[in-house]
Deep mutational scan, measured.
Amino acid sequence: KSEEHWTCVVCTLINKPSSKACDACLTSRP
């Protein structure tokens, strides 16, 4: 599942699959 985009639970930004934290608010990926 690491190839899928993911949505930040805090700010709802859709992040790149390679991101380990949100690009906007830096919250860790769930």
Score class of each variant (00 low, 15 high):
K1S: 00
K1F: 14
K1T: 04
K1V: 06
K1Q: 00
K1E: 05
K1D: 12
S2P: 04
S2H: 03
S2D: 01
S2F: 13
S2L: 12
S2V: 05
S2Q: 14
S2I: 06
S2M: 15
S2E: 09
S2W: 04
E3Y: 05
E3D: 08
E3C: 05
E3S: 10
E3V: 07
E3A: 09
E3K: 06
E3G: 07
E3R: 04
E3P: 04
E4H: 10
E4I: 12
E4V: 01
E4F: 05
E4D: 11
E4P: 09
E4K: 10
E4M: 13
E4Q: 06
E4C: 05
E4R: 04
H5Y: 12
H5D: 05
H5Q: 08
H5A: 07
H5L: 06
H5W: 00
H5K: 06
H5V: 03
H5N: 14
W6D: 03
W6V: 00
W6F: 06
W6P: 02
W6E: 06
W6H: 04
W6G: 03
W6I: 14
W6S: 04
T7G: 06
T7I: 05
T7D: 10
T7H: 08
T7P: 04
T7L: 06
T7K: 09
T7S: 08
T7E: 07
T7W: 02
C8A: 01
C8G: 04
C8L: 00
C8Y: 00
C8M: 02
C8E: 03
C8T: 01
C8N: 02
C8R: 02
V9G: 14
V9S: 11
V9N: 12
V9M: 14
V9D: 07
V9A: 15
V9P: 06
V10H: 04
V10G: 14
V10T: 05
V10E: 07
C11N: 07
C11I: 00
C11T: 03
C11K: 09
C11Y: 00
C11F: 00
C11Q: 01
C11L: 00
C11A: 04
C11H: 03
C11R: 03
C11M: 03
T12S: 11
T12G: 14
T12H: 15
T12L: 12
T12Q: 15
T12D: 07
T12R: 15
T12M: 10
T12C: 06
L13Y: 15
L13G: 15
L13R: 13
L13W: 09
L13E: 15
L13D: 15
L13K: 12
L13Q: 08
L13S: 11
I14K: 14
I14W: 06
I14L: 07
I14A: 13
I14T: 14
I14F: 07
N15H: 05
N15A: 00
N15D: 05
N15F: 01
N15P: 02
N15W: 00
N15E: 02
N15I: 00
K16P: 13
K16D: 10
K16G: 06
K16V: 06
K16Y: 03
K16A: 06
K16Q: 05
K16R: 05
K16L: 07
K16H: 04
K16M: 14
K16F: 09
K16N: 05
P17S: 11
P17H: 10
P17I: 15
P17N: 12
P17T: 13
P17M: 15
P17G: 08
P17V: 08
P17A: 09
P17K: 11
P17F: 02
P17C: 04
S18D: 15
S18R: 10
S18L: 11
S18A: 11
S18F: 13
S18T: 10
S18G: 11
S19Y: 05
S19T: 09
S19V: 10
S19R: 07
S19C: 04
S19Q: 10
S19K: 10
S19H: 06
K20Y: 09
K20D: 11
K20P: 13
K20N: 08
K20S: 07
K20W: 07
K20H: 08
K20T: 11
K20Q: 13
A21D: 15
A21R: 06
A21C: 04
A21L: 07
A21S: 09
A21Y: 04
A21V: 06
A21T: 09
A21N: 07
A21W: 07
C22W: 00
C22P: 02
C22I: 01
C22D: 01
C22H: 01
C22G: 01
C22Y: 00
C22N: 03
C22S: 01
D23L: 09
D23C: 09
D23A: 13
D23P: 11
D23F: 09
D23S: 11
D23M: 10
D23V: 08
D23E: 11
A24L: 03
A24E: 11
A24W: 03
A24K: 14
A24P: 00
A24H: 14
C25Q: 01
C25W: 01
C25G: 01
C25H: 01
C25M: 00
C25D: 01
C25V: 00
C25T: 01
L26C: 11
L26M: 10
L26P: 05
L26E: 13
L26K: 15
L26G: 14
L26D: 12
L26I: 08
L26R: 13
L26T: 12
L26N: 10
T27V: 04
T27P: 02
T27M: 13
T27S: 11
T27N: 09
T27I: 07
T27L: 04
T27F: 05
T27E: 12
S28C: 12
S28K: 13
S28F: 05
S28L: 11
S28R: 09
S28W: 05
S28H: 02
S28I: 10
S28Q: 14
S28T: 11
S28V: 10
S28G: 12
S28N: 03
R29G: 11
R29N: 15
R29P: 14
R29F: 02
R29Q: 12
R29W: 06
R29I: 02
R29S: 10
R29C: 12
R29T: 07
R29M: 08
R29V: 08
P30N: 03
P30T: 12
P30A: 15
P30E: 08
P30Y: 02
P30W: 03
P30R: 03
P30L: 04
